[in-house]
Design a protein around this nucleic acid. Structure first.
Lengths: 139, 139
DNA sequence: TATTGTTATACTCTATAACTATA
DNA sequence: TATAGTTATAGAGTATAACAATA
């Protein structure tokens, strides 16, 4: 059963849509600045926290494992990631960020304008309020 | 020059990233429920507010005009949109939602779970606070 | 000449299905 | 037999460049 949403909720949903659009725009631009696509940048960000089996990447990306092959291929071709065997299970390949990959991931994180300009408009107390509200929305 | 972001800002940015991921997940699922992709659903939502020249769609989508041709082709193939001539300029083609397209767009809007479940966790006052903070973040 | 929309081309991301090597 | 990763294939979104029709 569909139910009409009240005007205030609709307004918030529209604003979230605008935030989503802007986030993507800036994330993709930052990735392009390092000659990566958005998907490649997301995977590199994951790997900069530690190696992951191909399967683990697919789960976090919420996509089919077959897609991860190509994305890691392209990161590997640029020297940003590499595949390592898993000593515990020879079927598994662990994708890991190279040293240069970690540097690029850190640079990308810092170059995300979104983290500075827009949020700078809020005071520390307001940022904390925003954090708490978003955390509750996400459940 | 890159500058380190403070922990609170980083936390908010991470939460926004989570919101973005969830928004896409639900938006794409809702679109798939109507046999559309996310891009097709976004364009149909635009057109449900009124006809737009192909160029105008590209500007709002922030993509090249050549891409819009295929997206509108697919909406047209499903009877959700149609192309009309612009009486004022014979170079222009106006894309418009069909009656069925408008009905699907309305249904899609209502079926966006994101608008209900998560935001229902907030009181009206909190939703208003969230709205104001997001509006200021977007500038 | 400039603009609108399209076509042609190439790359990336995506899902599905079949294959391999391990377990 | 089940699982991890890959390959093959096809559809969709994207950018670039070249084109026809119109301004």
């Amino acid at each position: 059963m569909t139910r009409r949403t009240d005007p205030l909720t609709a307004e918030v949903v529209d604003l979230i849509g605008a935030v989503v659009a802007r986030y993507h725009q800036e994330y993709d631009a930052a990735a392009a600045g390092h000659r990566m696509t958005g998907a490649q940048a997301r995977v590199l960000a994951m790997l900069s926290a530690g190696p992951l089996p191909m399967r683990g990447i697919a789960e976090r990306l919420r996509c089919e494992p077959s897609n991860v092959t190509g994305i890691v291929d392209r990161l590997e071709a640029q020297g940003l990631a590499e595949r390592r065997p898993d000593p515990a299970d020879r079927r598994v390949k662990l994708a890991a960020a190279t040293e240069r990959g970690r540097a690029v991931a850190a640079d990308l994180r810092d170059s995300l304008e979104f983290a500075r300009e827009p949020l700078a408009a809020l005071s520390a107390g307001e940022r904390a309020t925003l954090r708490d509200l978003l955390a509750r929305v996400l459940g």
